[in-house]
Amino acid sequence: MINIDLTDQPIDVPAALRSVEADGAGAINTFIGTVRNKSTGRPVVRLEYEAYDSMALHQLHKVAEQAAEQWPMVENITVVHRKGTLHIGDVAVVVAVSTPHRAESFAACQYIIDTLKQVVTIWKKEFYEDGDVWVAAHP
């Protein structure tokens, strides 16, 4: 089963992990993306995430479906992404994957977070003490 969510509320990490539990799963692999205090050496004060919601949800579903096709033994996948204002240490994204054995859960989890970063329509603006930048916008 695939669960996708995009929320402006703090992500309930334990609930995301519970959501992929399955009797047939011997492995649950999780990626938790958190807000770091520095970006290319510059202290970060906060982040703002903006999303094109309908496309982001659609693309997240597609990425999860691709993972489930590539690793057909996958039991459950949950992806939750935060939007709005986040501070240092806040959870921005959780990917959780359950599979019978560990190798596939690592691989599917990594595929999902790597592909999410390439295609899902979410944008991050970093705020510093002396300015702000849309991440990756310019070469």
């Binding site: 977070i113 899902v120 329509t121 944008w123």
Partner: peptide, 12 residues
């Protein structure tokens, strides 16, 4: 069509 401009994404 629902059309949108998509600058470089930076989620995660």
């Amino acid at each position: 069509d629902e059309i949108a401009l998509i600058p470089p994404v930076s989620g995660g």
